[in-house]
């Protein structure tokens, strides 16, 4: 096994009495996408800020390509790119000026700065808007410019903090494609996300953190297989009806149906296929549900499965 691109062991970060990171361990293989998954406030951004030398850790170790973030921060900064949760661009500068500024500050050769900026503007479909101040950009354009800025020095390790939050599906897919291409060319990407689907699409390994602690470290496929891949939700209009329906349906599913008041949820490994059978069984017992929903598992489902409590914050959960 090659040396890890990112190695984190026993990493802690305290803010007063609050442990934002509590003895976190993980390794990221070079040339892969690594997903750091968790609800709001789980410690994802804190982990990124420690790894990018913005915050000093309270304990433990973190290395990027063999360089310790505390003892060799300058070396680490020369190897990384960061695109944050907030589009970190200067609104008074044009798109092109923003990229040139980052080029100068990352010491890209003078002869290359101009060409590199033009290349990235083209790749992120910002050429037309390149010479307008960024304050005239839409949220999606600003986010693309932000990711482009992170790529200016062609960093071997890229940190993306919730890169697709707030993007429309088309921009999101374009960004996913871009990440895949970067990784194919050898870049290592650590991305944080609240969305299981995103981690599943991109990452070859996923660590789930909750309240600063690692609660799962697995391949996304395995994580999903623990969970099934489709959730069928039924509103049975009454708790007693829900309990009866759960008894009837128990046989057909590997995971026991979950009952919460009048709501019944089933985990299917076979997409929405069992739905017809479910409805047929329920109808024959005069238990037709009030509403039916079929959805992909959300992070909340993972949480429920792993911790027995839901992600907790209202913003966590389904995309």
């Amino acid at each position: 096994m090659a040396d890890p691109a990112i190695a984190v062991s026993g990493l802690s970060k305290r803010f007063g009495a609050v442990a934002a990171l509590d003895a976190v361990d993980f390794h990221v293989e070079p040339g892969t996408v690594f997903g750091l998954l968790g609800p709001n406030g789980a410690g994802k951004s804190t982990a990124i800020r420690v790894l990018t030398t913005i915050l000093p850790p309270s304990g433990g170790r973190a290395e990027v390509l063999g360089h310790d973030v505390v003892r060799e921060p300058a070396a680490v900064r020369g190897l990384i790119g960061l695109a944050g949760q907030y589009a970190a661009v200067d609104k008074n500068l044009t798109g092109r000026e923003n990229l040139r500024l980052i080029g100068r500050l990352t010491h890209v050769r003078h002869s290359r700065v101009r060409r590199r900026a033009a290349e990235l503007l083209e790749r992120f479909e910002l050429t037309e808007a390149a010479d307008r101040p960024a304050r005239t950009y839409s949220g999606g354009m600003r986010r693309r410019l932000d990711v482009a800025a992170a790529l200016v020095p062609d960093p071997p390790v890229l940190f993306l903090d919730e890169p697709t939050t707030g993007l429309d599906p088309q921009s999101r897919n374009a960004l996913w494609d871009l990440i895949r291409r970067l990784v194919a060319d050898g870049t290592t990407v650590l991305l944080t996300t609240q969305y299981l689907e995103e981690a599943d699409q991109l990452a070859s390994r996923v660590v789930v953190i909750d309240r600063g602690r690692v609660i799962a470290d697995d391949e996304p496929a395995l994580l999903k297989s623990h969970l099934g891949n489709t959730v069928i939700e039924l509103d049975m209009v009454g708790g007693e009806r829900a309990a009866r329906a759960a008894d009837l349906l128990r046989a057909g599913f590997e995971e026991a149906p979950q009952v919460e008041g009048p709501h019944l949820s089933l985990v299917s490994r076979d997409g929405s296929r069992p739905l017809l059978e479910v409805l047929r069984v329920l109808e024959s017992h005069d238990l037709v549900p009030g509403t039916v929903a079929v959805r992909e598992p959300s992070l909340d489902d993972v949480f429920l499965q792993l911790t027995g409590h839901s992600g907790g914050t209202p913003a966590a959960g389904a995309p």
């Binding site: 900064r77 960061l82 949760q85 970190a88 980052i102 500050l105 932000d146």
Partner: peptide, 17 residues
């Protein structure tokens, strides 16, 4: 107060810049 400062702090630029 902007995200730009976070980015600056992650860049290999002089701390005085």
């Amino acid at each position: 107060q902007t995200g730009l400062m976070e980015r600056f702090r992650s860049l290999p630029m002089a701390r005085s810049a």
